[in-house]
């Protein structure tokens, strides 16, 4: 339905930002996400930032995965992030 990728804002000038995805950069509009600022991770869809990536929530989700992994008997293959 909609491909959106976490991208980091590395430059911002009013409604246009430069975003970076793993070494690939492009211009992205932040007109749909006025709260976006320099250094933020945003979800980019078709050249527009559509949502902030919530770091706290992301870490919480990962913590749950890790808990599940730690709870596995006899499995110590889990690695911390």
């Amino acid at each position: 339905m909609c491909l959106a990728i976490p991208a980091r804002i590395i430059d911002i000038d009013k409604q246009m930002a430069t975003v970076d995805v793993g070494g690939v950069t492009r211009q992205a509009s932040v007109v749909l996400l006025p709260e976006a600022g320099l250094g933020d991770y945003v979800l980019m869809h078709a050249g527009f930032a559509i949502s902030l990536v919530d770091e706290k929530e992301a870490l919480e989700t990962i913590r749950l995965f890790q808990q599940l992994l730690d709870g596995m008997p006899g499995d110590d293959s889990g690695s911390a992030l």
Binding site: L3, I5, V21, G23, R26, M44
Partner: peptide, 12 residues
């Protein structure tokens, strides 16, 4: 390469 992977994620 990391950049190829990133470009592919972006472009689907």
């Amino acid at each position: 390469r990391g950049e190829v992977r990133a470009a592919c994620e972006l472009l689907g």
